[in-house]
């Protein structure tokens, strides 16, 4: 027998140590749980986050000519993760009434060229391949597979807001990129 007290292993001691093992397991599991949920959540959350509409203030509606196209420039703040940049964008706007404005993406739906307004003919004309669009955006001639892309708009306190969006090119359906 060692000078030191041998391992006491009466039933009560075995019970106590058994309880310790269970307690270590349960408490350890809880530690894993309260750390695991945030760790998993931090990776899963951003990956499946829905896109939030980002409205950019473009111009006062009253400044737009009625029934005539106007090219408008505005600053849009694009955001991707921690990267944010301010971009100047152009759109075509046609004011239908005091509370209705149609805003077209300036990108031709054929291959992405920038089209222009032809005041003489009263059409939008793409200089690259000759696609022709009406004031309502309909494709009238040329290779464009679909009408001009309209952008989401809203009017608040007399101000026109636009949500910038890009769409797939060269196909008949309007699908966001």
């Amino acid at each position: 027998m060692d000078e030191k007290t041998p391992h006491p292993d009466p039933p009560s001691e075995a019970t106590r140590r058994g309880f310790f093992r269970v307690a270590i397991g349960i408490l350890g599991g809880c530690i894993g749980l309260v750390l695991g949920i945030p760790l998993v959540g931090s990776l899963v959350g951003p990956a499946f986050r829905k896109k939030v509409p980002r409205w950019a203030r473009v111009a006062p509606v009253e400044s737009l000519p009625l029934g005539q196209p106007a090219v408008l420039s505005f600053t849009d703040q694009s955001s991707e993760g921690y990267l944010r940049e301010t971009v100047v964008r152009n759109v075509w706007a046609v004011k239908r009434s005091a509370d209705e404005v149609t805003v077209f993406s300036p990108i031709c739906t054929h291959l992405g060229c920038r089209y222009d307004w032809e005041p003489n003919s009263g059409h939008f004309l793409c200089p690259c391949h000759g696609s022709l669009f009406g004031l309502d955006g309909k494709a009238l001639a040329g290779p464009a597979p679909r009408p001009l892309d309209t952008l989401p708009v809203k009017i608040e306190n007399g101000e026109l807001f636009v949500e910038w969006e890009r769409y797939e090119l060269g196909i008949s359906r309007k699908i966001p990129v």
């Binding site: 030191k4 391992h7 140590r17 310790f20 093992r21 307690a23 270590i24 408490l27 309260v34």
Partner: peptide, 22 residues
């Protein structure tokens, strides 16, 4: 003169301290 065991005696105390720390 008396001795204890690291497992599970001290490990239990370590776990309790870890819980309080967390």
């Amino acid at each position: 003169n008396s001795t204890g065991e690291f497992w599970p005696d001290q490990a239990f105390k370590d776990t309790v301290v870890a819980v309080f720390l967390l």
